[in-house]
């Protein structure tokens, strides 16, 4: 393993890329950990955003006007403000106030930066998921809906067993697109010191000034991840294809 690394470092040095940090434990170990943390963030955010997106959709389609309005307002706010600003507001402002409030009662703040990143990113993406699902619902053929109603299904059963599965399939391309955007957006976690791969790269290049070398690694890493997500998306689309629709 060591000789491989040494060989790689000398080979790339000839191209002008400085990968010496791979030989230094103090820098290599956090970098590799950063890869893991990035993947953790992405997986957690995917799951949380899917759940939150569904909840938002239920709120949007519900009959309670207040809840619907709140959900609508929330979606508008998260879709029209930058993720970084939302992250700062949540982590630097809200978290600080929560800590001060808890400290006054002698409790420690349990919320870590990782939690805030996942929270903000998944709520942000949930808004996009909800919009995509809503478009999916609009694409439902009215004959199917009328047929289900005439068969005496309750509103809840109709939703969970007929409307939602069909809407999911119709919205699948947009949802997969959102997931790809999610993978890319996870880089913003570096701004609040979460320890993902972008953060570790910044820590290394501010000391060693080898920005290009690290840049190539990060781009390759994210490229692989987005490629995997797109691949999974294509597989899902093929598997859940509705015969007679699409291509």
């Amino acid at each position: 393993m060591d000789t491989l690394l040494h060989g790689f470092v000398t080979a790339t040095a000839r191209l002008g890329l400085d990968y010496r940090f791979l030989l230094d434990d103090y820098e290599r170990v956090p970098f590799v950990q950063g890869l893991g943390v990035s993947i953790e963030i992405i997986v957690s955010t995917m799951t949380a955003s899917a759940v939150a997106g569904l909840l938002l959709l239920l709120a949007l389609r519900g009959r309670n006007r207040l809840v619907c309005g709140l959900a609508r307002g929330f979606i508008e706010v998260t879709r029209n403000t930058p993720t970084l600003v939302q992250l700062y507001c949540a982590f630097l402002v809200l978290n600080m106030l929560i800590t001060q409030w808890l400290h006054a009662r002698g409790i420690d703040n349990p919320f870590k930066p990782f939690f805030w990143v996942v929270l903000v990113l998944s709520l942000h993406k949930a808004a996009f998921h909800a919009e995509a699902l809503r478009a999916g619902f609009d694409a439902l053929p009215s004959q199917t809906l009328e047929g289900a109603a005439s068969l005496g299904f309750s509103r809840a059963t109709r939703f969970w067993r007929i409307e939602l599965p069909l809407a999911l399939r119709a919205a699948l391309p947009a949802l997969v697109n959102n997931m790809v955007e999610l993978v890319k957006a996870s880089a913003v976690a570096s701004a609040i010191a979460v320890g993902d791969v972008t953060y570790q790269s910044i820590m290394i290049w501010t000391q060693r000034d080898n920005v290009l070398a690290l840049m190539l690694l990060i781009l390759a890493f994210f490229g692989v991840l987005t490629w995997l997500v797109t691949l999974a998306g294509s597989w899902l689309e093929r598997r859940y294809r509705i015969p007679g629709y699409g291509y």
Partner: peptide, 10 residues
């Protein structure tokens, strides 16, 4: 940001 994070207990 660092000082705000300190006040936030990070």
């Amino acid at each position: 940001q660092s000082l705000l994070a300190l006040r936030g207990g990070s």
